[in-house]
Amino acid sequence: MVNDLPGDHPGAPEPGLREREGEILGRIRAGEPEAFEYFVRTYQRKVFRLVYTLVRNAGEADALTQDVFVKAWRAVPDFKGEAAFETWLNRIAVNAVRDSARRRKPVVSFADLAAAEDAGGNELPRAADPTDGTSPERDALSGQIRKRIGQALEALSPRQRAIFVMKHYEERSIAEIGAATGLDDGTVKSHLFRAARKLRQKLEDLR
């Protein structure tokens, strides 16, 4: 269950978590790579959810999530423990998604992928859509709305999209978003404001 994982509520970290994770990091640095599995097991769902919200493709999100953990493992010697491990992991995830977006222009757009997924075109299990069990008209409307939101998010810059998603989809605090993106609180708020304005323009007819 996702909500049972430590660090799911950023405002109230599990007591002793930093110490326990520090001890596991020490084991990894001492040459015990198997100890890293603790971090994968603990954070894989959260990293996947963040990445998936940004890329909207389960297969790509899976590959990127794996890359994030491998990058994190390689960077463990440089991790100083100034931020929480999860915050550091989020930073790696945001950078990985941004780099991936830079490397190649998606052949299929965000929104098309969301629509294909609604049509059962995803190789992974279909989303548990909150509209399941309602009328076909409502399902179609839901698909349309999701497509529009996907298009609107796609119009944001990778950084703005990451900030917006962390705030409104992941419900992270401004301070956490700042730590994950390397920006101060004021800049994060400014990006959020600008992202919301862009979305407003894109979602004009939804209101």
Partner: peptide, 12 residues
């Protein structure tokens, strides 16, 4: 709706 669908993908 969109956020719920994203969460739904992960949880399912």
């Amino acid at each position: 709706l969109d956020r719920g669908a994203v969460t739904g993908v992960v949880e399912s």
